[in-house]
Amino acid sequence: MASMFALANPKRFMDASAQVLPWLAGTASLVLVVGFFLGFVAPPDYQQGDTVKIMFLHVPAAWTAMMAYGLMALTSLFSLVWRHPLADVAAKSAAPLGAVFTVLGLVTGSLWGRPMWGTYWVWDARLTSFLLLLFLYLGYIALWNAIDDEVRAARAASILALVGAVNLPIIEFSVNWHTLHQGESIVRADGPQIATVFLWPLGLTALGYTLLFFVLWTIRIRTEILERRARSMMLGEPT
């Protein structure tokens, strides 16, 4: 906890992230390339045929979209409670990335649903709550853009992010509520119900997407810090 607050100093964050970024980016690229390759050469599933390849694109995107929202809500909480400037920079920087991963989850899911379920879309709890995730991201971004005063924008956007966090458990548990979407098959008490030949590429692409998110998130936070520094220099404020 203490080290987290130490990192929350913008200058220290710039120094530490500059050290970590090349390694993080290198690992992310390597894991993604291997994961994508193993997914691409995975054998066809006995029921799903080659559409199983879409799993390695869909599941990591959907997972990362939800993780990003969780991080955005958590940093929003820090921003509201401790009023730390880096916390709202972090929350703001996560939103556009989260939106991209949500769109990827929705589109790849739709392309998987058509051949397997016979439809691109149904308005069931799982799909609808995931679509709501996209609207929460877009609403959050719109709120930041609508309010000029940075402090007020951060507060309003943080409240929206926290209220919207209710949607995360809804997405998580909705696989059990009258849906076409398959049930939980990886994190189960009785172990993963998925063949090893699919588990490896799935694990690696999920890790790769997660690392890629952290790389891009860190660069976006750095960007925002530099921009705020430039803005205060133009206003002639001490930095």
Binding site: I54, F101, V107, L111, R114
Partner: peptide, 17 residues
């Protein structure tokens, strides 16, 4: 395996995104 119309666009949109 006959699913080209779904698998390739999924790769395409992922690379693009």
């Amino acid at each position: 395996g006959g699913y080209a119309a779904f698998v390739w666009p999924a790769y395409g949109v992922t690379v693009l995104g």
